[in-house]
Nucleic acid binder design. Structure first.
Lengths: 185, 185
DNA sequence: GGTTCTCTTGAAGACCGTTCAAGAAGTGAG
DNA sequence: CTCACTTCTTGAACGGTCTTCAAGAGAACC
């Protein structure tokens, strides 16, 4: 039992800070979004953020978890579409956070928390993609390399952001080349 | 004609600063390597760096140019090896700067200089890869998507650094799938 | 009423990249 | 030699960052 309770619930306030951080991280980028701006946007002082989150990286991880949960909730609604469509969907989902992909890669070496999130995310993504490729009849031995390629291409598309036609072309070619057996020579 | 000359040549000193910056950027990362550390490592004061370079991003671009020139000089020695070998070579070359790949992507939106370097680099890389794929008999229409996939996979391997066997598997599978025509269904 | 825990805050610390104004050092002209 | 001019170097400061510390406010329990 909590010895004390403010009128506003703890989770509620945490969520407010998180929402402000998410918006600023996505709109301005992780580096540009200062703790001061986040605090002002959430209507609190900087120190209050440090009551709910260990540091800025911890705040980033919490935002990432939030976004991932959102995306996974939506994933069930399109889980039975063809692989190419699902990849494009994943791309659109992730594209909302375009800058954050790079941020995660940048912060992971320096922050154990971000590193752990990054590892977990790729395990999840690998599992999903591997299941797909298995169903498409890919050889079991090729699966690790294939999922890696799939992941790398998606990250590349996020980082370099070609136009829609370019995205389509890359995804279609990738799916075609990965799911149809090459000719024996 | 220069009105004045110090005992040490201008280019020489610039090169010393550049060497110190390169080592720290690669070993500690761009963010962690502070201007103060770079200056101390080069045996000068911080302000001296600002005499030779506009800002930290300019210093980064100069380091990138240095590294790229080194790599290109070596490229001619292996230009006639098979595509897979050359990709692995490029990977080893670039791997020395693993962290810098991300740094470039992170700084490009904020720094016009880094952005310009990034664009130029990809134009160069795309040209090289496209030539290769053309020689391997790839359909002209597929070339842009193929080179994009090649680039993305290399960047992915650099960012996520699997072991040597994993790298080999990904490269082999990629080259195999890209250079052999899929079966018609 | 006093104690205890939760939450909030103002102020300060350590570091960052960058700029300013001043000084040192070499070169050429009078 | 002296003076002006350019090149290079530097100490000190500025505004910004994330983070921490110590103190205070507010609700719940004894």
């Amino acid at each position: 039992m909590p010895r004390n309770r403010r009128p506003q619930d703890r989770e509620e306030k945490r969520e407010e800070i998180l929402a402000a951080a998410q918006r600023l991280f996505i709109d301005d980028g992780y580096e540009s979004a200062s703790m001061g701006q986040i605090a002002k946007s959430a209507g609190v002082t900087v120190n209050t953020i440090y009551w709910y989150f260990r540091d800025k990286d911890d705040l980033l991880v919490a935002v990432l978890d939030r976004l991932l949960a959102e995306a996974l909730a939506q994933y069930t609604t399109i889980a039975d579409r063809p692989l190419g469509d699902r990849l494009l969907w994943a791309l659109d989902q992730l594209e909302r956070l375009h800058g954050l992909v790079n941020t995660v890669h940048t912060r992971a070496p320096a922050s154990p928390a971000v590193h752990a999130w990054h590892t977990g995310f790729h395990q999840l993504a690998d599992t999903l993609v591997a299941d797909d490729l298995r169903k498409a009849g890919a050889a079991e031995a090729d699966l690790p390399a294939m999922t890696a390629i799939g992941t790398f291409v998606i990250e590349g598309l996020l980082t370099h952001r070609p136009d829609d036609a370019g995205k389509r072309a890359v995804i279609d070619l990738l799916v075609h080349r990965l799911t149809t057996a090459p000719t024996r020579t």
